[in-house]
Amino acid sequence: MKKNTRNRIATFVVVLSGALFLWAFTLPEGITKTEKLTKDKKPAFVMPENVNKVVMNSCYGCHNSKSKGEKSKKKLNFDKLPTLHHHKMVVKLQDIADVVHDGDMPPKKFLVKHPEKALTKSDKTLLQKWASETAESLMPHHQQ
């Protein structure tokens, strides 16, 4: 390799690493998507990493602001969830717990083509427990 080319590659690598390094600082450390979207300093709820992973794998694709499915987006939008009034938040969280309990989501038709998106038994328990407990924690009498 010519010295010239080698220098160019080296510069490129250095600049790229620098950029990545700086970019890392703009991301709040260890913060999940849900928290980032909340405007208040203290989020209404926290989605632990393991729950977030399940949601991202099995649900988020259809239930986000950019989803093509109007119906799925209208019924539940994970991007908007943290910005809802607490009353509505409770309703949505309870709905999540219920559809997971009944095995209604992800839709069966969808799972035929994408079996890897199915919830495992432990995913179900985790998501249902989180949704149901978070809903309860948002009730005003519970917070004090």
Binding site: V90, V91, Q94, D95, D98, E136, M139
Partner: peptide
């Protein structure tokens, strides 16, 4: 009945009641 059974209303916990009212 599977989706909503009003005969069992008062056995639902409060968060479920809120959901049923909303839906």
């Amino acid at each position: 009945r599977k989706h909503v059974n009003f005969s069992e209303w008062n056995s639902f916990k409060i968060t479920k009641k809120l959901k049923v009212l909303d839906k």
